[in-house]
C-alpha cells in the first residue's frame, strides 16, 4: 500500500466532510481506502493519531476518530 497516498486520501475526505460531521467510525475509513484490508487501514489510522493528525473520541463503549481539534465536542467538553 502507498501509505502516503492513503494518509492524503483520509485527510482530504475528512476535511471535505468536516462541515457536517467531524467524527467517524473506523469502518468509515475502510471505505475511504477500499482496496486495502481493514487491518492495514486500521494501522494507518492509528499511526495518524500518533502523528497528531487525527484524534480519538470515545463514548466509553465505542471509539470515533476525527481530525485533531475539529468538531464541537472539544468546546462542549471544556477541553479546547
Amino acid at each position: 500500500m502507498d501509505i502516503e497516498a492513503a494518509r492524503e486520501t483520509i485527510l482530504t475526505t475528512l476535511k471535505k466532510k468536516s462541515k457536517s460531521k467531524s467524527k467517524f467510525y473506523l469502518k468509515d475509513f475502510y471505505k475511504m481506502i477500499p482496496d486495502e484490508k481493514p487491518r492495514a487501514v486500521k494501522n494507518v489510522v492509528n499511526k495518524m493519531v500518533q502523528d497528531e493528525l487525527l484524534e480519538y473520541w470515545s463514548s466509553g463503549s465505542t471509539t470515533l476518530i476525527g481530525l485533531k481539534g475539529m468538531g464541537k465536542q472539544a468546546h462542549a467538553e471544556d477541553e479546547d
Binding site: 460531521k21 467531524s22 464541537k72 465536542q73
Partner: peptide, 12 residues
C-alpha cells in the same frame, strides 16, 4: 446544534 454534531446524535 451549538453543543453537538447532529449527525452523531442521530447515529448514536
Amino acid at each position: 446544534d451549538k453543543m453537538c454534531e447532529i449527525p452523531l446524535a442521530i447515529a448514536a
